[in-house]
Amino acid sequence: MVTNRLLVSLSPSDRALLEPHLEAVTLYQGEILFDPGDDVTRTYFPGGSTMVSLIVLMHSGRGAEAATIGREGAVGGIVSSGHKPAFTRAEVQIPGPALRIETTRLEEAKVRSSTLRDLFSRYADALLAQIIQSVACNALHSLEARCCRWLLTTQDRVNSTEIPLTQEALAEMLGVQRTTITGVARALRARGLIRYARGQIIVMDRTRLQEASCECYAAVNQHFNRVLPEVRPQGIITATDL
C-alpha cells in the first residue's frame, strides 16, 4: 500500500493527469535518489512511513540534514522546468513504499493545470520554510532541543512511537559526532522522554518531548498548515486508488 498526503489533496481532474504515469516502488534504507549536480529526472512521493532526507555535503565528506520529507510531500523536480541539477543529496533514511513519476511528465501536467502548479508551488514554499528554519535552528538552539525537534518531526512521518533509526544515523542527520548524540540520548532517556533499543528510538512521552524541543518544530508545522491547509493527515491515497 502506498500513501501520500500531497497526492490525495488533488482534485479528480488533476489526479487524472498524473495517474497514468505514477509507478509504485520500494525505497531502501541508504538508497541515494540523487546527488549534488545530478539531473533530477524523477520525482518521488513517499508513502507510509518512508522518509527521505535532503543532505548538504561538504568537501570533507561530512554532511548535515537540511530537510526531512515523508508522506506529506515530494522529493525531486517540484517547481523548476528544463535542466534540474540537484544541490543536495536525497537519501532514504526510513525505507518503504513510494510513488515515482518522470519529472518531465510532472512538468507536462503542471502546464495543463494551473491548480496543480499552484499546489506544488505552495509545497515548495513549505519545504523552503523548513530549510530556512533549520538554518536558524542549527545556529541558535542547543543540540538537545534540535534532537527533540528531529525526533518529533520523524515521528510525525512514521506515525509510530517507534522510530527505526540508530543513534549513529541521528548523529549524522544532526551533523555531530556519535559520542555527542549518545550523551543527549542518555539525558532524554533518564528523564523518561525516550528509550532506545538496537536500531530503534522509542518516544515515551511526546508531550514532554515537545516541551524540550525548540520553537522550530511548531513554526514549521504552522506554516505548512497555513500554506497547504488541504493536505491533511487523514487523507490517504493507496496504490489501488491509482
Rank of each mutant, 00 (worst) to 15 (best):
L54N: 02
R71D: 13
A16R: 14
K110Y: 02
A129Q: 09
M1K: 10
V220H: 04
I202R: 01
A239V: 11
S213H: 01
A74R: 02
R117T: 12
I94E: 09
S114Q: 09
T207A: 15
L7T: 01
G61P: 04
D118Y: 06
Q133Y: 07
Q234W: 13
C137A: 15
F224H: 13
Q210G: 09
V25K: 08
Q210D: 01
E211N: 09
V111P: 00
A197W: 03
L140E: 02
A139E: 04
D241S: 11
A86C: 06
V231S: 00
L209P: 01
M58C: 06
G96L: 06
L143S: 04
C137T: 15
F34K: 06
Q210K: 12
M58R: 15
C147Q: 08
T161C: 10
Q234G: 06
Q234S: 15
G30F: 09
G47C: 03
T240Y: 11
D156H: 06
L116Y: 02
R71A: 15
P229F: 08
R149Y: 05
Q222A: 15
A197K: 12
L209R: 00
S114C: 04
T240K: 13
L228H: 03
R146H: 00
P164N: 04
N221W: 07
A124F: 07
T88P: 08
G48T: 00
L152A: 03
I69L: 10
C216M: 10
L140A: 08
M1T: 14
N159W: 07
G48S: 01
S121A: 06
T68N: 09
L152M: 04
S113V: 04
T179L: 11
G235L: 12
T115A: 10
M58W: 05
V40W: 09
I236P: 01
R157E: 03
Q200F: 11
A145Y: 07
P12H: 08
M1E: 15
V8E: 14
K84S: 08
G73S: 04
T50E: 02
E31T: 09
G199D: 05
E107A: 13
L165S: 11
W150K: 12
S142M: 01
R122I: 00
I32H: 12
A145F: 07
M51P: 00
L33G: 06
T161A: 14
A136C: 05
P85K: 05
R42L: 14
E168C: 03
D38A: 10
R62M: 12
E162F: 13
A109S: 05
G235W: 08
S49K: 12
A171F: 03
E211T: 11
E211G: 12
Y196E: 08
S160Y: 07
R122N: 06
A139R: 02
E23C: 05
E172D: 14
G77R: 14
V2A: 14
R208L: 04
T161I: 14
L193N: 02
T240D: 13
L128D: 10
T104N: 07
W150F: 12
S121E: 00
V2T: 15
E23K: 15
D35V: 13
R189G: 11
G37E: 10
P229V: 05
L54A: 09
V135L: 11
V56M: 13
T182L: 09
V135K: 04
I163H: 11
E108I: 09
V92F: 07
G70F: 00
L7W: 05
R232W: 06
S13M: 12
G96M: 11
S53I: 08
R89F: 05
G175C: 04
T3F: 10
T3M: 09
Q133F: 07
